[in-house]
Write a protein that binds this DNA or RNA. Structure first.
Lengths: 253, 253
DNA sequence: CGACTTTTTGATCCGATTCAATACGCGTGG
DNA sequence: CCACGCGTATTGAATCGGATCAAAAAGTCG
């Protein structure tokens, strides 16, 4: 029994670590949830067992109960159109929140599916909302995350709205790279958890085009690709690709 | 002096009307702000004098102070890229909130510009945030609006990501139509406050394409166009255009 | 190992852009 | 009041990027 104590301490600190280092970093820390406040947030969080590849934590139309913070792995979200075809709305990496778009209608406008084995935390929304009434910094952080998502979407919008195939793929690669590096993973090499088909769908391109782009990017020495494994060789050149692209005339405003 | 009392009543009720019928309808009402709570919200709102066409309530990079609710007129928001070119991120109509995307970075990621004479209310954000700590329904409503914006952007994303020029213009027209009708304007005829150039920029198309589309839509009897004035003749056909468009294979998921 | 899916590569086709020119709308000043 | 000039909108012809169709190659899994 005496040896239980140290173990317990270890596991408690592990949980804290989990909350501070991964999923909820952006939710609880930056504007500072400390001590008791942090514990109160942690109290309402459920740490569920991992999803296997292909598992769906929630489906389009499901009643909105919770938001999900990804701890490891990755998830895609997509909507199904009337004709049965799917449109991928996002890829979600460790440390990101999924399900915020369900608040407005009180049900999920998209389905989430694990792209690989994925562990996550479930945060019952109405409890979070109540708690945010008491904790101004949590409240602000929640708004901040949602605002960030709006900005992100707007950027993506702009990207997809008027960019070439090259620029789209470059953007995706850079987005993944920077998001992964923010979570402590390598910015220069990583595995794509999604299929070429998913990438094509997300970027609004044909699969063949995506495949050709990877080949060409490699020929140009921008990246090295081996199946799902990608190495970014010329980050700056990729960045240049996506910033030089806007084609409307400057006189307009 | 005695005649002041009735006048004051009238003007007070007018202000209330403004808040309930236009801009802030979606912010204060649906989840029910009543009586004193509504008054507390109204207390923090500034009703500024109208913007003339071309005026800019805030610029990209400005410190985030307030969100703006459009009472009449319309506004476009856009970002300026490094090379000086502009990308329009949205058109905003009466009853809509502008500036929510500034929360995450504490400064505005875009510039807003009046497309015509436009009146609006200014809502100091930190006061709104504080008030939302005390009023759960206001808090929820704020989250709901932001969530709605995320959903809206995701839809648009999908639209711009993979749709044809026809589908894009049809979507814009239907979006304007439904948003206008929600505010009590006609769903079938309205004036476009933005130029063809703005439309093209927003939809990620060339101006010439937009112009040709209007011509063709008119030839097909879908709409009637006279300069900026548009009549929607076959709403259902336009709707059909945008729902039949998704092209990815159903087996994917 | 063999069936199936995913990815790559090649050839052709079509939609949207681009370039170029004309028409329209509108405010200014003669 | 009309002529002029400038920005905005429309129309036409040529070009190009990406989709589509078709097929081979590489993975994946039972």
């Amino acid at each position: 029994m005496t040896k239980n104590t140290p173990e317990k301490i270890v596991s408690l600190s592990k949980i804290k670590m989990a909350c501070q280092s991964c999923s909820l970093y952006q939710l609880c820390l930056p504007l500072g949830l400390h001590g008791e406040d942090l514990e109160r947030l942690e109290d309402i969080i459920k740490r569920s067992h991992p999803l296997k590849k292909g598992a769906t934590p929630f489906h389009q139309g499901d009643k909105f109960e919770a938001i999900y913070a990804i701890r490891s792995g990755s998830v895609k979200t997509y909507t199904i159109a009337d004709d049965g075809s799917e449109q991928i709305t996002g890829f979600h990496l460790p440390g990101e929140l999924v399900g915020l778009d369900a608040i407005s209608e009180d049900n999920h406008p998209c389905t989430a599916k694990a792209l690989e084995t994925t562990s996550y935390c479930e945060i019952p929304f109405h409890q979070l909302e109540d708690l945010s009434g008491e904790l101004p910094s949590l409240r602000h952080q929640l708004l901040k995350i949602m605002s960030k998502e709006i900005t992100h979407d707007a950027n993506l919008l702009m990207l997809l709205g008027k960019k070439t195939a090259d620029e789209r793929l470059a953007s995706l690669l850079l987005s993944l790279s920077s998001r992964l590096s923010n979570r402590g993973f390598s910015a220069t090499e990583f595995n794509l958890s999604m299929s070429r088909n998913d990438i094509a769908n997300y970027l609004g391109l044909a699969v063949e085009t995506v495949s050709r782009l990877f080949t060409r990017f490699q020929d140009q020495g921008l990246v090295k690709v081996d199946g799902k494994f990608v190495q970014i060789l010329k980050n700056d050149d990729l960045k240049a690709m996506i910033s030089e692209c806007v084609q409307s005339d400057p006189k307009m405003a």
